Amino acid sequence: MRNPPIHTISRDAVKAWRITAGLYESISWLLTIAGFVLYVVIDFPLWIVLIALGVTLVSTYFVVYLLPKLRWKRWRYEVFDQEIYIQHGILVVSRTIIPMIRVQHVETKQGPILKKFDLASVSISTAATTHEIPALSNEDASDLRDRISALARVDEDDV
């Protein structure tokens, strides 16, 4: 079996993922608050509201606090001359090898949350799929994009 990739993504990925998860979890909190309002206004069953509160609390803990750190610990990547090796996953660990000859284009992406932490993601497209290495520092993302692009071009020229 092959050794796991050695490069990790930025530690600030945890913060960015927590903010993103918090924004999604705010929908659950708004629905839970709406349940309390319904309980007060129209005598909505309290047990349903309390179950919603419990589910929202547990969900917030896992999605906002636990999962981003576990995701960060599992994310690894490595770029070789002939392939890109990506490993990620929490319960199911996915190991992907992308042959350099199959790479069609490489781009960096940066949304507002990643921009706040000076991070960017590298997106690697082949004919069939798109793979992403998330939350690298801007400098690392640009360097990686340029390196993969150069290696993919070299492979094309050799064919």
Rank of each mutant, 00 (worst) to 15 (best):
I90G: 13
A52Y: 07
I19E: 00
L38D: 02
R102D: 02
Y85N: 10
A141N: 01
V63M: 10
L144I: 06
D158Y: 02
V37Y: 04
R71F: 15
Y61R: 07
V63H: 10
P68L: 09
L46K: 05
Y85E: 03
V122H: 01
S59L: 08
L136I: 12
F80N: 10
P45L: 09
F36I: 04
S142L: 14
A52P: 13
E132L: 13
D158P: 13
K15Q: 06
A120F: 08
S10V: 13
E139P: 00
L67D: 07
Y77L: 12
G89L: 07
D146L: 12
T108A: 03
R145F: 11
V55S: 03
R95M: 11
L119P: 14
R147E: 14
I9A: 03
I133T: 12
I9V: 13
R74S: 06
A34N: 00
L136G: 08
L119T: 03
V92A: 05
V93L: 08
I6C: 11
A127S: 01
K69E: 00
D158K: 13
S28T: 01
F36W: 04
L46F: 08
I19N: 11
P134S: 06
L31V: 03
L50F: 01
D146H: 08
R11N: 01
I48S: 08
A135G: 00
L67C: 08
E25Q: 05
D118F: 13
T60E: 05
A16N: 14
V63S: 14
I98T: 04
T129S: 02
V122I: 10
A152R: 12
W17E: 04
H7F: 04
T60N: 12
V49E: 06
L53T: 06
S10W: 00
L30R: 04
R95S: 00
W47F: 05
L91D: 00
T108I: 10
T129K: 05
F62S: 03
V58D: 07
L70V: 11
A13P: 14
V79W: 00
W17D: 08
I42F: 00
S137H: 08
V55L: 10
D81E: 10
T96L: 05
P134Q: 02
I97S: 15
I90V: 06
I19S: 13
D155K: 15
D43Y: 03
A13K: 00
I9T: 11
T130E: 04
V40P: 12
K116H: 15
H88F: 00
L67W: 02
N3S: 13
D81G: 15
F80M: 15
R71I: 15
D143Q: 04
E78I: 12
I133F: 01
P68Y: 01
Y61W: 01
A16T: 02
P4H: 07
H131Y: 15
L144V: 06
R11M: 03
I27F: 11
D146R: 01
V63T: 09
Q82W: 03
A127T: 15
I148L: 11
K115T: 12
S94P: 07
H105R: 06
S28H: 07
S142M: 08
D158E: 12
Y77S: 05
A34E: 02
V122Y: 12
I19P: 11
P4T: 01
L67I: 11
S59C: 11
W29D: 09
